[in-house]
């Protein structure tokens, strides 16, 4: 692969797509580490980044094999960056997994289930099947039939625990977004670009999703 060719393809004035992708992944990682509930899975973004990562691994292996002493420092840079991106992706996935593990039944169906990736869904289903079989065999099987469910909504209170959507989060405004009602307060927040506030997640969730605000 010739680097000059790649560079020639890039318009100097525009920011290359891969830079934008890494910036977006960074933002999503911070958001996922901070938000009380699982956010939507960015399928396209992750597949683009993992594709580039495997191409980069090949490039690194190729260069390691030739062992040109002149390019060895370049190789160190490539590897260092690779490790950084790997950390980002891994930490992002692990943060998501922690949320799925915390509220498995909540993410199992309905709207919340749509935020999971295919792999996360597989994991959740497999894990829940195992758990249910185990609970059934060890103690649930001994209960009367009507008390065996783990997601019983009867009696006005659902057994399925949900994430606390009212938790306070730090947000930063990326653009002006007008007035936001702040539950629990009489005043509204007139969102101006660059503002930093602590607010309830439920009040800003929609604005974070469309990209007017970002979590910090």
């Amino acid at each position: 692969m010739d680097i000059d060719d790649i560079l020639a393809d890039l318009d100097a004035a525009t920011v290359p797509q891969e830079t934008l992708d890494i910036q977006l992944l960074t933002r999503l990682w911070v958001a996922e580490r901070v938000a009380p509930e699982l956010l939507v899975w960015p399928d396209d973004l992750i597949s683009r980044i993992t594709e580039r990562m495997s191409a980069q691994v090949e490039l690194i292996e190729e260069q390691t094999a030739t062992m040109d002493p002149k390019s060895s420092f370049g190789l160190i840079v490539l590897q260092t960056e690779m490790e950084r991106v790997k950390f980002l992706v891994r930490s992002y996935l692990r943060a998501r997994l922690a949320k799925v593990d915390a509220h498995p039944l909540y993410y199992n169906e309905g709207e919340p289930a749509g935020r999971l990736s295919v792999e996360e869904k597989q994991y959740l289903t497999a894990h829940q099947t195992l758990l249910e079989a185990h609970y059934g065999a060890s103690f649930l099987g001994q209960f009367p039939a009507q008390l065996q469910r783990m997601d019983d909504p009867a009696g006005g209170i659902s057994m399925v625990e949900t994430p606390d959507a009212e938790r306070a989060v730090f947000v930063r405004a990326l653009r002006d977004a007008g007035l936001v009602r702040m539950p629990g307060r009489d005043e509204s927040w007139d969102v101006k670009r660059g503002d930093v506030r602590v607010v309830r997640w439920s009040a800003v969730r929609d604005l974070v999703e469309i990209g007017d605000l970002e979590l910090i």
């Binding site: 680097i3 560079l7 980044i49 370049g74 690779m82």
Partner: peptide
């Protein structure tokens, strides 16, 4: 230092004594 194509975009050729902007992690390296 020759230009490198990183996952986060290309790094320009580093040619002394011309200044260049690079991410902090690379600058530290």
């Amino acid at each position: 230092l020759d230009s490198l194509h990183l996952l986060g975009g290309p790094v320009p050729v580093l040619q002394p004594p011309l200044r260049n902007n690079v991410p902090l992690w690379l600058a530290l390296l």
